[in-house]
Amino acid sequence: MRALREAAVLLAIAIACSTVAYFGHPKAPSFHVDDLERELDEILEMSPVLWVDARSDEEYQSGHYEDSISLNEENWESLFIGFLDRWLPDQATVVYCSSQSCLRSHEVARRLKEELDIEEVYVLRGGWETLMEANLVGGPEK
């Protein structure tokens, strides 16, 4: 019984800390990440679109979607310049990473929204796996 009480106290402390972190941690994940996501069909109807590959440099070099540019958090400073060279204000930006469970694309999209103060930034639902299933890119890159 005492152990249960102590477990409840520890759980309460953890929940309290995580609540504070959710509102205060700069990298805290969002419960509403789906707001950014769009299906491939929907994205293909947009025009013009700037594709952004949020996977690692190695993955990008081993294969990427046609005309996409690399932009990831690891090398943000150097790659962001390349993004700015290609980005146009009237253009939608679509970010993808390796799969549905990968959140790098969400981080990149969120950061682009914040730094450029733009609305037209989306994440491809399913990422690279979706592009492969649609035969828009080659085989697995891993």
Binding site: E6, A8, L10, A14, C17, S18, A21, Y22, P29
Partner: peptide
């Protein structure tokens, strides 16, 4: 993903410093 890290730190602290051992 939000709760687990804090739970692990709480458990770790309790085990290392021998407080609330049963709950940890």
């Amino acid at each position: 993903s939000l709760i687990t890290p804090y739970l692990e730190i709480c458990i770790g602290g309790c085990l290392a410093f021998r407080v609330m051992l049963g709950g940890a």
